[in-house]
Amino acid sequence: MLSVEALKIRYGEVEAVRRVDLAVDSGEIIALVGANGAGKSSTLGAIAGLVPAVSGKVVFDGVDITGLAPEAIARKGVSLVPEGRRIFAGLTVADNLRLGGAMHLPATEARAREEEMLELFPILRRYHRVKGGNLSGGEQQMLAIARALMGKPRMVLLDEPSLGLAPQLIDTVFDLIAELRRNGLTILLVEQNVALALEIADRAIVLANGEVVLSGTAKELATSDLVRQAYLGA
């Protein structure tokens, strides 16, 4: 469904991503893991069109989307939940959700979709008229995910959904991700919490210094020495 070939990203002199190749099949969860600064967020940003690639190619559903504007990529059905949630703090939960669907669905469908999201995230119903900025970190994460799902994307890119959340909330978020996949959503998941990521993912890719150092099924990686030593603390 999505393939990234020989992606290279540079910020000024800093080469953030040297070469990343990856492929995500429909209905899969792929985990992208690696240390801080490995280039995970940059890779997601390049796929979503926020970060320009120096070279390489991003193909979604057989269409080359490299270099397209973020809004164009979003409308092709790829939705990024950015690192740090970045919900609109000054807007109500309702408005945050509405914007998520505004460009993808006609008004009536958008309302129905909002209802579905409120079913899926009951906490958001409770705070429907509350400003995003007043929600707790976990609630904001729910909102960010719900907002990204509003437009019925075919693929979501999740950038560290567990960041800053209490363990119990992390479980809730991961249960939710599992449920989304069961409903047929394709997911590219960036996670620091490698153990959790490997538990939920079908396959995983390990990035270090902007390069893919290891890839394989989640099970293979969970038992690989490199991953166990570097990321699982074993």
Binding site: E71, L99, G151
Partner: peptide, 21 residues
């Protein structure tokens, strides 16, 4: 209008919602 208020906070995320810059 809502998108404009949102864009004042975080322009790029508005674009991620598919709203043209």
């Amino acid at each position: 209008g809502t998108a404009m208020r949102a864009a004042a906070e975080d322009f790029n995320v508005v674009r991620l919602m598919g709203i043209p810059a």
